[in-house]
Design a protein around this nucleic acid. Structure first.
Length: 701
DNA sequence: CTAGGGTTAG
């Protein structure tokens, strides 16, 4: 009440009555510091100058109060001036100034001050000084200096202060020294809730999920009271573990303890439910929160996107803007992801323009999201443009560019980016090598692939996993070395999955190795007796070998297990609309014209050598009808529609949910030639860029 | 008169 009265009466600088004692001034300076009220502090400062202090000690305390005030108000030059003019300083003078620098983002200045103070030698650092200095080390990731502080702390016996212990723990964890953090955590007695929060958060951040879970279990057995931050951290752990059960238990615990949900906790819960596939639970939490901020909006959008509801995410984006909440860099990254999933180049371009206008382009996550969006929308060149323009890059940037090029079959470009990455001294990781090895596959560079696997990967300390070995299988297959691929699989001690075996099976199909294919298919069906892809490939293989009895057998098997081929769906974005085509469906308003267009295109390419692959049609119908079924494949419909109404001359971009079939691949190659158009198709596996009668995949996919 | 931990992206 006193504060309010004072501020309303003395809003502008003027002498304060003598009844305002020194004690009161000191108290008010603390208030002005804590409320960041620069003006009030300046008034008090003026007051103090006019008054002579009783003792040297009083002068020091007054100056400290002022330094603290200016430091809290981020007026570091004023704070520093006062500090420099002091004839005598105590530990509070130093620590107030240091804390100011730390919070103003000038941590290196804190370390410099600490050195100066130690050189002087008259003052021994106390727990306050260490807490601030160690926090500064965390801030600028100065592990070496942090370790030195640790030694110093051990000598001075100040580790018993929880502030110091937790600062050290946090320092090790932010400097990625999880071992060091764990040592502090376990060897120093007395863990409070902050120790647990920092420890779990640190382990989580560096991917030690099981270790984090262990600490959580230990924390549950201790009589510590959880706070809001504990809940945020633990919910995050559930998200990373994808452990919905644990998440539900934590959510329950919040209800039981009657904790007030803040926007931090809600955002974390929304995110956790979203990543665990519980979109309705996520929505409930979102709706129950009254003070939404940009983070909670972004979390709910992402939850929808994670669950394939892209349109709802776009709607939420519009709603958020209507409420006057400005999107930030994460919001754009999330929405760009949605564009990437849909291959919505047009929406992505519009967003990019808005990002440029709002000045968010320099965020690494924005650049990364744009590279991803452009690559997945079939415009890897624009992705590379973004990449080139980026001032700061991280591991995700490099990986996105490498795998972007790789998916487009541009192996040479992918490897070039990888070389530049090494030259830029960015350490490659697990994901990097998946892109690199698949690039070798596209180029058919068998020796180079093995060189990367055996030499470069070992050199960088990345342990190869099944994804890398699968790339090697693909590489051998592509080079026609099926036997070698098979023996590689049988001799490499790794848990091969269906994806790996299907790579080999697909090669058997493409290269007509019926015997091996049958064997491989058996292996896959032992792993997963319902693998649709295998049945389809197997049936296609029988058809290719003209073994109609085999085709019939497979169909019977599929019927018996009630396995249905997922319908092929393709879509194309024209202007602002997305047009969806499902194989054999005639629901599109222009259905008959589109079918006419397909027939027209097919009759144009037949003289050029197109022969309908009726042998691959699974239906029990006459040949003529089989040909008709082929012409109703969703990608043919989408391409035809694109040629009918998309802007003349530009590329046609189509997205398909499954892999392209042989027949469509063959037909669209020739269509690209007769229409003189670039046709880019993103299928479940990769991109096919058709131009002048050939495809970027080099006839192998 | 001085000190610590959290949410949305890949």
């Amino acid at each position: 009440m006193f504060k309010v009265q004072f501020m309303s009466i003395h809003a502008r600088p003027r002498p304060i009555s003598h009844s305002c004692t020194l004690e009161k001034t000191k108290y008010l300076l603390k208030v002005s510091a804590d409320t960041r009220n620069l003006k009030l502090g300046k008034v008090l400062h003026g007051q103090l100058i006019k008054r002579s202090a009783e003792s040297i000690e009083d002068v020091v305390i007054q100056s400290n109060s002022l330094i603290n005030h200016y430091a809290k108000c981020r007026q570091m030059s004023l704070a520093c001036q006062l500090f420099d003019r002091m004839l005598e300083r105590n530990l509070v003078s130093w620590s107030s100034l240091m804390a100011g620098y730390l919070h103003s983002g000038l941590s290196s200045e804190v370390l410099r001050l600490f050195k100066t103070m130690n050189l002087d030698g008259t003052l021994q650092p106390n727990e306050y000084i260490f807490t601030t200095v160690i926090s500064s080390c965390s801030d600028i990731r100065a592990l070496e200096e942090g370790k030195q502080c640790h030694c110093y702390v051990l000598k001075s016996g100040l580790l018993s202060y929880s502030y110091v212990k937790n600062a050290l723990l946090y320092m090790y964890s932010s400097c990625s020294d999880v071992q060091g953090a764990f040592e502090v955590f376990e060897t120093v007695s007395g863990s409070d809730i902050l120790s647990y929060n920092s420890m779990i958060h640190g382990l989580l951040e560096h991917g030690y999920l099981n270790k984090a879970l262990e600490v959580l279990i230990k924390m549950v057995s201790e009589p510590v009271v959880w706070d809001n931050i504990t809940y945020v951290t633990v919910i995050n752990l559930c998200k990373h573990l994808k452990d919905l059960n644990l998440g539900l238990q934590i959510h329950n615990r919040i209800f039981r303890t009657g904790l007030k949900l803040d926007v931090f906790i809600c955002s974390a819960i929304i995110d956790m439910y979203g990543k665990c596939g519980k979109i309705f639970s996520a929505r409930n939490v979102f709706d129950g929160l009254c003070n939404h901020n940009v983070v909670s909006w972004t979390a709910i959008m992402d939850a929808y996107i994670q669950n394939g509801c892209f349109e709802e995410a776009f709607n939420l984006f519009i709603q958020m803007e209507r409420k006057g909440v400005l999107p930030n860099e994460c919001t754009y990254a999330v929405i760009l992801n949605s564009c990437a999933e849909l291959s919505s180049l047009r929406h992505g371009d519009v967003l990019n323009a808005r990002i440029k206008k709002s000045g968010l382009s320099d965020y690494v996550i924005i650049g990364n999201a744009l590279i991803n969006m452009y690559s997945k929308s079939g415009d890897v060149e624009s992705g590379h443009q973004v990449f080139s323009d980026m001032t700061y890059r991280d591991i995700i940037t490099w990986n996105s560019m490498i795998s972007g090029y790789s998916h487009h079959g541009l192996g040479r470009e992918a490897l070039e980016v990888f070389q530049n990455m090494l030259a830029a001294e960015e350490a490659p990781n697990y994901v990097t090598f998946v892109g690199v090895l698949s690039a070798c596959g596209h180029l058919g560079l068998v020796d180079k692939g093995f060189y990367y696997l055996n030499q470069i990967m070992k050199g960088t300390g990345v342990t190869p996993g099944v994804e890398h070995y699968t790339c090697i299988v693909g590489l051998l297959c592509r080079a026609g070395l099926l036997k070698e691929a098979e023996s590689f699989m049988r001799s490499t001690p790794v848990k091969w999955d269906v994806v790996a075996w299907r790579t080999l099976l697909n090669a058997c199909h493409i290269q007509g190795n019926f015997g091996l294919g049958k064997k491989v298919a058996e292996t896959i069906l032992e792993l997963d007796p319902d693998d649709v892809g295998t049945y389809i490939l197997l049936s296609n293989m029988y058809a290719k070998a003209r073994r109609w009895d085999g085709v019939a057998k497979i169909r019977k098997l599929m019927r018996g297990r009630n396995i249905k081929k997922e319908p092929g769906v393709s879509w194309i974005e024209i202007r602002n609309n997305i047009h969806v085509f499902v194989s054999e469906d005639k629901k599109h308003p222009h259905s008959s014209q589109i079918h006419e267009k397909v027939s027209e295109l097919l009759s144009l390419i037949k003289p050029l050598g197109y022969v309908p692959r009726i042998d691959t049609v699974l239906h029990d119908v006459e040949d003529e009808q089989k040909e008709e079924y082929l012409s109703y494949h969703s990608e043919k419909l989408a391409v035809a529609y694109g040629l009918m109404i998309a802007p003349i001359g530009g590329p046609i971009r189509v997205i398909k949910n499954l892999r392209m079939c042989d027949d469509c691949h063959c037909a669209i190659k020739l269509i690209s030639m007769v229409t003189n158009r670039k046709i880019i198709i993103r299928d479940a596996n990769r991109f096919h860029c058709f131009k002048n009668g050939s495809c970027s995949c080099g006839e192998y996919w």
